[in-house]
Computed example of a mutant assay.
Amino acid sequence: MLVHRKKRPRYEIQAPLTSLIDIVFMLLIYFMLTTNFMVDEGIKIKLPQARAAAPQKSQEITLYVDKEGRAWLNEKEVAHDRLFKMLKEKIAGGKDQLVIVKADRSVMLNKAVKVMDIAKAAGAARLCLATEKDF
């Protein structure tokens, strides 16, 4: 009588995936928290809306006009009498200089036009009034 031994199944080597999955999720959380999302920080204004608004490729000089009619240049409030001098210094070397005016939609038109007039007098070759795309 022959006795046959039962073959035992071989143990398969398995890599521990739990710690690997934990590391992948930690990396995912890290990159989600450290990613720089595009946030346009600055003066809180609500731009007027237009259906035919086109995004600007390069923004050279940006002027903000808030709802009280105050002018802001480089996120610093500037009095209207000093604005001309500061813009003239910034525009001095540039030909075909673009000045973008971002005026709050609730500002009186006269105040926004006054800032645009100061920019044109300071030597701005091109003026642009910023709008939001109307959806």
Rank of each mutant, 00 (worst) to 15 (best):
I29E: 04
M108A: 09
D134R: 06
V39H: 14
K90R: 08
L129I: 04
L98G: 02
A125N: 14
A119D: 00
R10L: 11
R70W: 08
I61M: 13
R82D: 11
I118C: 03
M1W: 11
Y30N: 05
I21P: 03
K57Q: 09
V78P: 03
T35Q: 12
Q14G: 10
K6W: 04
K120H: 04
I21T: 11
K114L: 08
I45V: 09
I43Q: 07
P9F: 10
R70I: 07
V24R: 07
K6G: 06
D96E: 03
A71E: 06
E60W: 10
L17W: 12
S58L: 04
R51V: 15
A53T: 11
M1E: 09
K114A: 12
P9L: 12
E60F: 08
A54P: 09
A71W: 08
R82S: 12
L28E: 10
G123E: 03
G123I: 02
A79R: 11
L127H: 03
S19R: 10
K133G: 04
L28N: 15
Q14V: 15
P55L: 05
H4M: 13
V39S: 12
M108H: 10
Q49V: 08
E75Q: 09
F37E: 02
L47T: 04
L127V: 04
V65Q: 06
P55A: 07
A124K: 08
F25V: 07
F37C: 04
M86D: 06
G42K: 00
L129S: 07
T18H: 11
Q59N: 09
A121V: 00
L127P: 03
K85E: 11
L63Y: 00
V3I: 14
E89K: 13
P9W: 08
D96H: 05
F25W: 08
L109G: 08
D96G: 00
E12V: 15
I13Q: 13
I100P: 02
D40E: 00
A119W: 01
I29F: 10
I100C: 04
